[in-house]
């Protein structure tokens, strides 16, 4: 009967929500520190920690029938296969077809010499004026 269902204490919900908001702050903060390729790993690690908290506590999987956990973990396994095997293809095309790494000059009106605009959509003569003091170094 229904009264056999696990009722999560209010305190647990508040602690989980607090942790999620705290981790959101952490992930924004570390994104402004240049750690090279470690940035994306850290961002995904924090996101996965947050997702784990949501799944186990908000979605009640921790106390739920374990078959629901099995279904969810299976969806992640298939997603992993999906990503891995696609990247095994796309990640190594460069050696065979070098041209895939060049710009895709599609029909985007971006390429049709449309009137240049600034960030507010107003037309401008050229972009040269805006380049003063701009840092061109990328991460």
């Amino acid at each position: 009967m229904s009264n056999e269902h696990h009722i999560t204490p209010l305190r647990t919900y508040l602690i989980i929500a607090g942790s999620l908001l705290f981790l959101t702050g952490v992930t924004v903060w570390v994104s402004y520190i240049d750690l090279g390729s470690f940035n994306i790993i850290l961002a995904m690690a924090v996101a996965t920690l947050k997702a784990t908290l949501v799944v186990l506590f908000f979605m009640h999987l921790l106390w739920d029938d374990k078959k629901n956990l099995v279904i969810f973990v299976m969806s992640l396994m298939f997603l992993g296969i999906f990503i891995t095997f696609t990247l095994l293809d796309t990640g190594f095309r460069g050696g065979i077809n070098p041209e895939v790494k060049t710009a895709i000059k599609s029909k985007a009106s971006f390429y049709d010499n449309l009137p240049l605009t600034d960030t507010h959509g107003n037309p401008v003569e050229s972009h040269e004026d805006h380049h003063e003091g701009e840092d061109d170094s990328h991460h």
């Binding site: 029909k107 985007a108 009106s109 605009t117 960030t119 972009h127």
Partner: peptide
């Protein structure tokens, strides 16, 4: 400002002059 997908992209602001395929 025209920061849109694919063929609808038209934004040419100063930040994107050196970007290859923002669309």
């Amino acid at each position: 400002v025209g920061q849109l997908p694919g063929i609808f992209y038209s934004y040419m602001g100063p930040e994107v002059v050196n970007i290859d395929n923002p669309h």
